[in-house]
Design a protein around this nucleic acid. Sequence first.
RNA 1: GCUCCCAUCGUCUAGCCCGGUCUAGGACAUCGCCUUUUCACGGCGGUAACAGGGGUUCGAAUCCCCUUGGGAGUACCA
Length: 476
Amino acid sequence: MSVRVRFAPSPTGYLHIGGARTALYNYLYAKACGGKLILRVEDTDLERSTKEYEQLQMQDLAWLGLEYDEGPEKPGEYGPYRQSERTDIHKKYAMQLVEQGKAYYCFCSDEELTAKKELAEKENRDPHYDGTCRNITLVEAQKRIEQGEKPLVRFKVPEKAYTLKDHVRGEVTFPKNMVGDFVMIRSNGMPVYNFCCVVDDYLMKISHVIRGEDHLNNTLRQLMIYEALEAPLPEFAHVSLLVGEDRQKLSKRHGATSVNMYKEDSYLPSAMVNYLTLLGWSHPEEKELFNLTELESVFALDRFSKSPAVFDLEKFRFINGQHLRELSDEKCVEAVSEILGSDSNYAAQSSEWRSEFISLFKEKVHFFSEYKGHLEDIFSTKYESSEALTEILGWESSPIILTYLKEQLASFDGEIVGSDQFSAWQDHVKKELKIKGKPLFMGMRGILTGKNHGSDLKRLIPLTPVSVLRDRLQNL
RNA sequence: GCUCCCAUCGUCUAGCCCGGUCUAGGACAUCGCCUUUUCACGGCGGUAACAGGGGUUCGAAUCCCCUUGGGAGUACCA
């Protein structure tokens, strides 16, 4: 049987990192098996779903490199791929179940239902639907519908236990009476998640359902529907959830939870893929740094961990830095251009300058956005008043170096102090002024950059315009 | 409340299914040292975990039970 998996987001917000992770696992499994990934938009909640979010989520998926084979924008044999466009199909199957006596119309009002539920809770009974409308005959029900009543459709839950075989959880048994007769079709005619999910997975020939553990309990209902529909069961894998540091479900107060935010913070998509994969899944050879393509050949459903994983920005940062270092200088130059914009000092420099700048700071930086600070440092003429710097400038050798460098800069003719020129100055200070060791190196650094640490001066000084150097020394 | 799921360093995890090779391995973070006359990168090393209690067994991180803690579901949300 050919492998067909799906990612089924609800377009009610930005793509969540948890959602991205399940999309990723589905993608990887499809690739690993030579199967297909289907994108199905679950927009039956008309109130909250929007086309904008749908678009945005698809963009984020594309940014991560998770291409799918069939979806709203990529029609295949099993469309449409938007659930809201499939209600006729859902209704058809619902009617089938009603006719077979496996589901029934329910005319109970909202008020009645909440009253019953509250009573049940008070009496410590399960707040399940009590089955009032279970025995209304189809003929009678149709008569009431003709008279204008707007019923919903409930599934008649069989009195038995169900067992689920799950790739992550193992065998999970749901005892009988765990759920009451649940709603399949709302009174407004829209089908409910648990029902259309099954109908669509069945019709779209989904072979493996890989999704978050929050759906584990739902699976019971879905098992019942598969059975009622006499549809073959897909295989299931319920992946553990992502949580915040406090072990609570990831939410806004934990910081950025949408893929979009990381994109804007200049995180690398490859790093995001790498890190997200690692949260709840482990490489057979315990590798921790990899890219999508490498994963495609080793991904398997038997290496998931069962417990929820804390999303840790610290490790994500490390991984991002590693991926950044893998990139060519050319790619980094381009990416940084986009981030810093066309009116920055960076854009104003020559392309040689830009690649030297990128290459010089590449080992220091974890994110592209961190280049901004380094850029500002190069063009800044201010002195940081730090204790360490004050100490350096306080050495008796420092004023001598300062005077010498001032003279040199005053008579210097050119835009850029090359590394040879810089070395010549350094040699002069060493040989003629007899300053060496720490006072030499730290003195030169402190005076020329206004900082007590930074990159190699031989590379940093040639990046710094002479005018900036002159101003700095003037400001001392 | 009821039902389901989960439990190894601070964090992500390997090991668990198929008990001994585990004085529990790796990674991030952290600390120290080396390297770089700074910083970073890199290298080396340290601190740090089988939730608790009962079984089963010659032997348990690994199998069973209970307790505790966490999560999810119990919707005309998905």
